[in-house]
Design a protein around this nucleic acid. Structure first.
Length: 775
DNA sequence: CAGTGAGCGAGCTTCCGCTTGACTT
């Protein structure tokens, strides 16, 4: 048995390190945290110093048993979890849960996974930093108190099974408030004037595009400018050339990787993390959950070597970046390729794409600035007050641009950038045409997954390991939805001056197209307004940043953790109790108007089953009528007319083969009913407008799918069938379903094969699965 | 590429951060 046991957080890291340390060292992994507050109850003794009640979760019991065994036979146990608040706490929980002998236990940290760094760490062990551990306990306890006292309040005052927390509630608030801004935004229009000139030089004709920088508010202004341009003589008034430079972006952190993979590769945040994890486990990249932009000395020298080899020495410029994000803990390096001399790797297409991005970003970060020359040309026209401006850019030295350029979120329409034709001051230009185009002001953009992560990071909310889960949590709770919405056509006016004639046109563009954006739901808006009304202090965008400062004080040993928590909890708990007592149950009820048929009030509100319309009063003698809102409707935007339409279900759409075809709304959304059978409508179908033709199409589609569903059946045992399902082929026996092993052709399965697979799966059933704990 | 097509009830639900599998009907 090895004399030394090293415990790290990640198994992939353990594997690498074991290679460095030799036979005397056994390296194992804790798989993250090993203890936590019990989930079933608050698990904090609020009356006695907020003592936490920790337990080893069911899925960690095996890890602990395993580590205990290894620790028993080791002479020294090295706790090598990350050097941040959570890592320190993991080391402490390990010492506690494993019952480690203090004399045999050493705490070490390292920032890069290299042999030298690790051997150095072994030479300089320390003890567990209890202040840092206490800062983590304060963080953990505060989050539990906030989450487990706010959520039950929502169950009472809004709807069961909702949730609130320090992080998720702020994420939802950002999305709700952005949507409110968009709803209140008033679109304006203005005119932009551009001109095309011709430049004759050495027998060749070049085109020069220039614009008036100002926005013209009225179409009359634009038209009069075009009138004046009819007979104007255009001359180059001034040419200004200034040098400029562009610098590369720092290497990737989790958040910037998620943003760039979203912009350049259209990956979701979750997909990026999944593929990065695969690359990490294959040893291709360093750790993917990090907030640091720092590269190790070894990485820097590898980068230098690779840049020299690939592009030449003059492209090298090694740099040290410092993090700007709030609350960064920098326990790891930036995300970079393990071997910078491998620009390409083997793997799936997605793995190669993400790796390529990481390689380029890392290499570019150590390359020289791009040197540019920016030229601005002013062109005056006789009789026209404003000057036209043309800009051009010449690349003197490409530097890092040879490899990589960061994308930007806002796709501003750029005017001509590039090489300008040869021009001289005083030159008279031939005007080919002048164009006045109507443009519209734009509302602030909705968040994408990645831009939300960026915003949260700016606010210091959430950690690299939680950005992806936050996005999935707020969707799972149905506070927000990720949606792509089609745009609608919009007219815009254009005036063209050509050959001394002004020609007017109305053209169309598509506006409002939203690709994979986050929209708040009605319940999301309602919960947010409740929380903002009663708990603005928690929903404050600076709440996290402020408590982080206090955690830092705890870590520095200046503040006692449970006193800090008491100071927070006493007023917070009073606030909970007060709201419990004083606030009414909220439903977001809104009066839309009167029903012209019955003369009764029409309300929209959130009911037990979601947003709905109600005709008549709740406490009236005659029961009110109810109807659920459709998927794309919201109580914020629905009109009285749309609300009343919802009462037209079930709607007869026609008669098919002597039987009625109706459309209705059920528990699981809109459906077609025909001859006692049900057929779900697609998301894109509007149940109010579905025609008989479309209904028949939907029915036929389903019948066809049913037909394709059966891969094989067995006359000797009709209970056994091989079927096509949502996740691919499977075996169905009586009511139970079974997975088909990999590499087996479903249509080749015999009855015996199926029964064997079922029997084998049955045995597995007895294995200890998720044991549901009581208490 | 599934399949389900209401409506009392009693009892359940929930946080954030660390880390990977297990296991999919």
């Amino acid at each position: 048995m090895a004399k030394n046991l090293v415990i790290v957080e990640s198994p992939a890291k353990a594997k690498t390190i074991e290679g460095f340390l030799g036979k005397d060292f056994l390296v194992k992994s804790s798989f993250g945290h090993v203890r936590d507050l019990s989930k079933a109850t608050l698990s904090i003794d609020v009356d006695n110093g907020f003592i936490p009640n920790y337990e080893v979760p069911a899925d960690k019991k095996k890890v602990i048993d395993d580590l205990k065994k290894a620790a028993k036979s080791a002479e020294v146990i090295w706790l090598a979890s990350d050097e941040d608040r959570e890592g320190e706490a993991i080391a402490w929980h390990l010492a506690e849960a494993l019952n480690l002998d203090q004399a045999k236990t050493k705490r070490i940290v390292f920032h890069e996974i290299t042999k030298t760094a690790i051997l150095e760490a072994i030479q300089t062990p320390r003890t567990i930093d209890q202040n840092l551990v206490n800062a983590q306990q304060a963080r953990r306890v505060l989050d539990r108190l906030v989450g487990y006292e706010l959520s039950p309040l929502l169950w009472k005052k809004v709807r069961p099974a909702l949730s609130a927390g320090r992080v998720q509630s702020v994420a939802v608030r950002l999305i709700v408030e952005r949507e409110n801004e968009i709803r209140e935004f008033i679109t304006g229009s203005y005119f932009k004037v551009t001109a095309l000139f011709e430049v004759e030089k050495e027998g060749k004709t070049h085109t020069l595009k220039a614009e008036i920088p100002a926005k013209l508010q009225q179409s009359e202004e634009a038209e009069s400018m075009l009138e004046k341009a009819k007979d104007a003589v255009f001359t180059i008034e001034e040419i200004k050339t200034v040098p400029a430079k562009k610098s590369p972006s720092p290497p990737f952190t989790t958040s910037t990787l998620q943003q760039e993979a979203s912009r350049k590769l259209s990956f979701s945040v979750a997909k990026t993390m999944m593929i990065a994890q695969q690359l990490y486990e294959a040893g291709k990249i360093t750790y993917m959950r990090t907030d640091s932009v720092n590269l190790s000395g070894m990485a820097l020298s590898m980068a230098k070597e690779e840049i020299t080899r690939a592009f030449g020495e003059k492209y090298v410029k090694t740099r040290n970046y410092t993090t700007k994000s709030k609350g960064a803990q920098e326990a790891h390096e930036a995300i970079r390729p393990t071997y910078l001399n491998s620009p390409e790797i083997k793997g799936t297409a997605d793995q190669r794409k993400l790796y390529d991005l990481i390689w380029k970003r890392t290499i570019a970060s150590q390359m020289g600035d791009a040197q540019l020359e920016k030229t601005t040309v002013s062109i005056s026209g006789t009789g026209i007050k404003e000057s036209f401006v043309a800009t051009g850019e010449v690349l003197i030295f490409d530097g890092f641009l040879k490899v990589y350029l960061e994308s930007s979120d806002d796709e501003d329409d750029e005017i001509q950038k590039g090489v300008l034709p040869p021009l001289t001051k005083g030159m008279v230009l031939n005007n080919r045409e002048v164009l006045a185009t109507e443009k519209y002001t734009q509302h602030p953009p909705r968040y994408t997954e990645a831009s939300l992560v960026k915003k949260l990071e700016e606010l210091g909310i959430g950690r690299p390991s939680t950005y992806a889960p936050i996005i999935s949590t707020i969707q799972k709770r149905q506070y927000v939805v990720l949606e792509t919405r089609e745009g609608v056509p919009r007219d815009y006016r254009v005036m063209i001056l050509k050959s001394k004639k002004i020609h007017k046109e109305v053209k169309q563009e598509i506006t409002g197209y939203e690709k994979s954006k986050l929209f708040p739901t009605d319940i999301g808006s309602l919960v947010n307004s409740f929380l903002v009304q009663y708990f603005l202090n928690i929903l404050d965008y600076n709440f996290t940043a402020n408590v982080e400062k206090k955690f830092d004080e705890v870590a520095a040993g200046n503040v006692v953790w449970n006193e800090m928590i008491r100071e927070f909890y006493t007023p917070f708990h009073a606030q909970i109790a007060d709201t419990q007592e004083k606030s009414k149950k909220v439903s977001g009820e809104k009066l839309l108007g009167l029903d012209p048929v019955s003369g009764k009030n029409v309300f929209v509100k959130i009911g037990r089953y979601g947003p709905m319309v109600q005709i008549g009063e709740t406490d009236s003698e005659e029961k009110p009528r109810f109807a659920g809102l459709l998927k794309n409707q919201s109580i914020e935007t629905i009109t009285l007319e749309q609300a009343l339409e919802l009462f037209s279900f079930p709607r007869l759409v026609g008669v098919y083969k002597d039987k009625e075809v109706t459309v209705s709304i059920g528990r699981f959304g809109p459906y077609v009913k025909y001859d006692g059978a049900f057929f779900s409508l697609k998301k894109t179908d509007n149940p109010l407008e579905v025609t008989l033709e479309r209904a028949i199409e939907v029915m036929e589609e389903k019948i066809l799918a049913e037909k394709n569903k059966l891969i094989r059946d067995y006359p000797e045992n009709p209970e056994v069938r091989v079927l096509n399902g949502r996740w691919g082929p499977y075996i169905s026996i009586a009511k139970a379903n079974y997975k088909i092993p990999k590499g087996v052709e479903p249509s080749s399965l015999t009855l015996q094969d199926c029964l064997k697979i079922a029997a084998a799966a049955g045995e597995q059933e007895d294995k200890p699965k998720k044991t549901r704990k009581k208490k």
